[in-house]
Design a protein around this nucleic acid. Structure first.
Length: 402
RNA sequence: GCGCAGGUGGCAGAGUGGUCAAUUGCAAGAGACUGUAAAUCUCUCGCCCUAUGGGCUACGUAGGUUCAAAUCCUACCCUGCGCA
């Protein structure tokens, strides 16, 4: 019995994009879909009921964070992630590979982030100076220090699989290495090849663990790397595709403007009949680019993080709700928005909550921003089903950037 | 009325002869955030200008000492506490 089924309902004519349905032991995911991030077994500031009500189908949690706190053994005892956090729908867990990057190279060199960008580089440089590199990579795995208490820890592909099996998400990811966007071709290749070997080990260990496991079994996605190089991306896609994964993750770092193309290179190679997840993306423009280039699911912290920091999405672009002009604005963020926040509260109220540093600010803003992203991808799905993807894309983006 | 302490930028509060347009915190203004070390971080914050520099006005008020004062002296005004 397969751990997961994927049926394609409709394709975008002449492009890689498609609409479909992923079936998991905890329910269906209608794709394309925006996956809500709940790193530490909670979508920050929201209850699972709120997450569900705003339309989210899937939640993604993180292996690294949950391993450190409260520990995967405890989660196993609790009956798994679903039961522990009271989320009955489909779940994913990331493998912890990204933390190798964000705790390691991303802080070891100047201004490294998931994306290239001078401004960000400058900012990160300042932050980096206050931190020490916390992770070291070798062929077998990664040695790192806990950001919580400084204790030395070690992850290997096998360890990541064991933790993810204890967590019990429906879709889990192979242990990978995410490289810095500034890394040279040679290093990208080295890291990619290591990721491939780790992928094989992840898969082998996953099968071994599944043998002894009770149903329902978990689906494992292999992760494609290769940085921003076409030859590496294609090679990585071929290699990962040749292994018997249930689906794929596309990882790594990109130049913002080149992300769509890089994703296209990969998805042109990956088999059509398995789902593809674009890790850590994205913002509205990126969602269109990803779908168009064959991505089925996305996860991104941006809606919730921005919400907590007072930046709110609207159809005509982002606004900062703490700006002086909103203090006396007694209209909702968007009058035609269907979210709970817009249905009951004004911008003036949100502005007040943020200024007063009230917790409800984070909740109401997160509800709106997540609703915005989840519904945007849902609209993209509907537009594919209705053969109107390009029309919707152009219409949405022209308003968004106006 | 006498004694003591004190009056500093929107607020709190440093500074006690030059390196002070004045530390710091808060408030305020703006920006960033893409597999969450993020309810975080960055920048601005007296006025004006031909603006990595220059000018002006400022530390209760008015005088004074000094090359130089938020810092020292005198008077006055105000605030708090104590004593009458």
């Amino acid at each position: 019995m397969p751990a997961l089924n994927f049926n394609i309902e409709k394709k975008i004519k002449g492009q890689l994009g498609r609409a479909g349905i992923i079936s998991t032991p905890h329910g269906e995911i209608k794709t394309p879909a925006f996956v809500v991030v709940g790193t530490k077994a909670t979508v920050k500031a929201l209850t699972p009921e709120q997450v569900k009500t705003l339309g989210a189908q899937v939640v993604l949690a993180n292996t690294y964070h949950l391993y450190l706190e409260p520990g995967d053994e405890l989660l196993k005892k609790a009956g798994g992630l679903h039961q522990f956090m009271n989320w009955s729908g489909p779940m994913m867990t990331d493998s912890g590979g990204f933390q190798v990057f964000s705790l390691g190279v991303a802080y070891e060199e100047e201004g490294i982030n998931k994306f290239l960008g001078l401004e960000r580089a400058e900012e990160n440089k300042k932050r980096a100076s206050n931190h020490e590199k916390l992770a070291k990579i070798d062929e077998e795995g990664v040695t790192f220090r806990s950001h919580l208490d400084g204790t030395e820890q070690r992850f290997t592909p096998e360890k990541s699989m064991e933790i993810q099996h204890n967590l019990g998400a429906d879709i889990i990811f192979a242990f990978d290495e995410c490289t810095a966007p500034t890394a040279p071709h040679d290093y990208q290749q080295e890291a990619m090849e290591r990721t491939h070997r780790w992928a094989a080990r992840s898969l082998a260990h996953h099968r071994k663990l599944n043998l002894g496991a009770k149903l329902p079994s978990q689906a494992l996605f292999g992760i494609v790397q290769g940085g921003r190089f076409k030859n590496l991306r294609e090679e990585s896609a071929r290699t990962i595709a040749s292994m018997d994964f249930d689906g794929f993750g596309i990882g790594g770092s990109f130049e913002k403007k080149d992300m769509d193309t890089a994703v296209g290179w990969v998805n042109a190679v990956l088999p059509e009949n398995k789902p593809r997840h674009l890790l850590g993306i994205g913002e509205p423009e990126d969602l269109f680019g990803g779908v168009e280039n064959g991505v089925d699911t996305f996860d991104c912290v941006s809606p919730t993080r921005m919400a907590r920091n007072g930046t709110i999405q609207t159809k005509t672009g982002r606004i900062n709700i703490t700006n002086a002009q909103y203090q006396n604005d007694f209209s909702p963020i968007e009058p035609d928005c269907g979210c709970y926040t817009c249905g009951h509260y004004t911008k003036a109220y949100l502005a007040h909550l943020f200024r007063a540093k009230e917790m409800l600010a984070a909740t109401l803003a997160s509800i709106h921003n997540l609703y915005f992203s989840v519904q945007l991808v849902e609209h993209i799905r509907q537009s594919i089903l209705a053969d109107q993807f390009q029309e919707f894309k152009q219409s949405f983006l022209s308003h968004y950037h106006s």
